[in-house]
Nucleic acid binder design. Structure first.
Lengths: 283, 283
DNA sequence: GGGCACCGATACCGTGCGGGTATCGATCAG
DNA sequence: CTGATCGATACCCGCACGGTATCGGTGCCC
């Protein structure tokens, strides 16, 4: 199978419309029809149920859509990583680390300091992004390592090492009645009048339906809480970022959060290995 | 990047010889040279250092070799899984489960029984293989699920759920002096006269250097121990397979072994999900 | 040191495949 | 019944891929 065929099929499978898919691919519709037919013949499998009015995925087609997307991602990642490795000075920014904006900043600072002191350390570029995008960055070859937080972030297809676990606290507007309590339970926080839990975007960038404000990062969230428009349950370490308008109360029965360092399973580069070793050896 | 280019490059990078690589690919050498040049131009990166006598990988070339192999594997897996999904009766053998020969047989039997009793269960084909091949089976799309044993087996790039942990025992020839002890430590087993630890093949199928007999599966190993030519440290559950000539003694400081069920991160098929759910719910 | 063998690069040529335009046939809306 | 829509088919063109012949550089060996 050629990546061209895969790209064509994925386009059609996503659009469920040969014309639009062809437009998206920048080719005419007839060659696209033929390419799909040829792919089906080579695979010996019908991928699409098509009448002259509608296109639907077959069982095999659904499999190829998912698997093909993953395969295309792997090819693109290979290309990007090769390009990066070829940049002058043995790879430009050396390492790219991606983490959630405003999360684990203390840990990250310690890690970067400790790694920089290692012999043979290379420059590390830090990318901050929303919670849902980190895995993508790694899988697409845009980044070499990530700091993730289980159980929130998916570690599917990644190598990980645990760096530490912490409890969670409820973040509330200062002065809220609950801030007087020494500790809370999750049940105390559901359905608080006027303080809904926020909604985070899913892996596809869309927000789940329901009440609660839409947020993209922690800074937005904290601002909303300070304004008295939301509350949240966050890892303890976020306390370092709380200012006067916010208060934190431990939530006893919230799941423990584990910070892990993650990297794609193939990248066996010395720099990644060193960084991971440094991270696991942090005090 | 097209898979054709990737295949060409991987062949050359593995052979480090254009002529042999071309022969392996079934094409002539000049088109291969041109294809590599074109790939290098498109990537804007030198992949190979070549004099007229020798070919060597550049930094970027090493990256592309590793990443490209992974990408090709992903493409092949997509193709195989699609073919499987298109077989008559909604996918032929339904599910393919791969596990080490002679390992966790009791757990496997319970799992298969419990799953078969589920509503909507599909036929499960069981493949037994050597310890190093399981990951490959999953990644290449030949199998849907595997039973792995941490920390021995690599779970790189796979989703896993823990099924249970167990201690390890030393497996010794019956009558050996150590079998009289109630328990052992790892130190008791290093350098036992005439009873070396066996060597297992690595992921590439080759054996590490050193003393000790080469074994491919547990049955071979047990036979060697019964003959008084080796000893081994194995998970407790292997006791069920020991016959009169063999004895097991707990090893207190051996690492705990965790049996996990593993599957490739994309396959979100109902059958795999059901099987995993059944497995984690086992008594 | 010169002839030789080896190996990758270059030059040149044919053809098959990927892509384009025009059109058909089926299906649904009104 | 008619027009609109959409995928399939027919046909043609250009190029990129593969093949053969050959060159140029390099290490080896007598």
């Amino acid at each position: 199978m050629e990546t061209r065929e895969l790209r064509y099929f994925v386009a059609v499978a996503e659009e469920l419309h040969f014309g639009r898919a062809a437009q998206r691919l920048g080719i005419a519709q007839p060659p696209l029809s033929r390419a799909i037919q040829q792919l089906e013949r080579r695979l010996g499998a019908a991928l699409l149920d098509r009448t002259s009015r509608t296109v639907r995925l077959t069982e095999a087609g659904s499999v190829l859509l998912v698997e093909g997307r993953a395969a295309l991602e792997a090819v693109d990642a290979a290309e990007r990583r090769t390009r990066r490795a070829a940049l002058p000075a043995t790879g430009g920014p050396g390492l790219v680390l991606v983490t959630k904006a405003n999360a684990s900043s203390a840990l990250l600072a310690r890690l970067l300091d400790a790694y920089a002191a290692e012999p043979g350390a290379v420059p590390v570029e830090v990318i901050l992004c929303g919670p849902a995008e980190q895995g993508r960055f790694l899988r697409e070859g845009r980044a070499d390592v990530a700091l993730l937080h289980r159980p929130f972030d998916s570690t599917a297809g990644l190598h990980t090492e645990e760096l530490g676990t912490e409890g969670q606290v409820a973040v509330l507007p200062a002065g809220h009645p609950l801030t007087l309590r020494a500790h809370l339970h999750l049940a105390d926080l559901t359905g608080l009048p006027g303080l809904p839990l926020p909604r985070w975007p899913g892996p596809d960038g869309s927000y789940p339906p329901g009440p609660g404000p839409q947020v993209r990062d922690h800074a937005q969230l904290l601002q909303l809480i300070a304004l008295g428009r939301a509350c949240a349950v966050s890892p303890e370490s976020c306390r370092a970022q709380l200012h006067g308008d916010l208060a934190a109360v431990p939530v006893l029965d919230a799941p423990k959060v584990t910070t892990v360092i993650a990297w794609p399973p193939h990248s066996r580069s010395r720099a990644v290995a060193d960084l991971v070793r440094t991270a696991t050896g942090l005090p």
